[in-house]
Computed example of a mutant assay.
Amino acid sequence: MRQSTTSQSRPELAAESSAPGYSRKAVIPAKADAFCAAFMPHPAAVGNMRDSTAAFLSRFGLAGQLAGSVVLVVSELVTNAIKHGHGLVELEIHVAGGTVTVSVTDENPAPAVLNQADPDDISGRGMALVAAYSDKWGSSGEKTWCEFRDDRAGSAA
């Protein structure tokens, strides 16, 4: 489930994202709030975390393409934690200062790996999707995180 220990920035997304389905039309509120969940690694948790993420984001009026991108990334990170991680999985989503931050932690100390999947591979594209849809991401081993920023909302990031 892991990438590298250095963060990956997406400077080309600073003005307008070219990632399919990602739009900066939603304004991420400055109000700070968080969603946290801890669960045993089971495939059913992926759908539950997608639904919980969508419900949490809707509290801020975040819907459409931006929320869809966050939900997609949550799905990929949780799936990777279940497939490649060890032990308890934790999902945290923070909304503050024009930024949505997503992090998934498991007990595997190995950092996430950004793979180049072959066209006929049926898996191996999760971290590529995280990199494509988020503005910045990274992994410190047990924790993999990413950010979605809306600079118009006053984000300092």
Results as ranks from 00 to 15, higher is better:
113 V>A: 12
133 Y>I: 01
121 D>N: 08
137 W>T: 11
105 T>A: 10
128 A>T: 14
104 V>D: 00
126 G>I: 07
123 S>H: 06
103 S>D: 08
118 D>V: 01
111 P>D: 02
135 D>M: 08
117 A>G: 09
137 W>S: 15
121 D>W: 01
105 T>G: 00
119 P>D: 15
127 M>H: 09
139 S>N: 05
116 Q>K: 13
100 V>Y: 05
126 G>V: 09
120 D>F: 15
135 D>C: 12
125 R>F: 08
124 G>E: 03
110 A>L: 13
138 G>Q: 06
109 P>K: 13
105 T>K: 14
116 Q>T: 13
124 G>C: 05
122 I>M: 05
135 D>F: 02
137 W>P: 00
139 S>C: 15
137 W>H: 14
122 I>H: 01
118 D>M: 10
111 P>L: 02
135 D>A: 04
106 D>N: 15
115 N>E: 03
101 T>I: 02
113 V>N: 04
133 Y>P: 00
128 A>V: 04
100 V>C: 13
128 A>R: 14
131 A>W: 02
125 R>Y: 10
125 R>S: 03
138 G>T: 06
134 S>E: 03
114 L>E: 01
110 A>S: 11
101 T>L: 09
131 A>K: 13
105 T>F: 03
122 I>T: 11
139 S>M: 09
129 L>K: 11
134 S>Q: 07
113 V>W: 08
119 P>Q: 03
123 S>A: 13
122 I>W: 00
124 G>V: 09
107 E>S: 15
132 A>M: 07
121 D>Q: 04
128 A>H: 05
129 L>C: 06
118 D>Q: 13
133 Y>L: 15
107 E>P: 00
107 E>D: 14
102 V>C: 08
110 A>N: 12
108 N>R: 09
132 A>C: 12
122 I>A: 13
111 P>I: 01
115 N>S: 03
108 N>L: 10
121 D>M: 03
135 D>G: 08
129 L>G: 02
134 S>R: 06
129 L>M: 13
136 K>A: 08
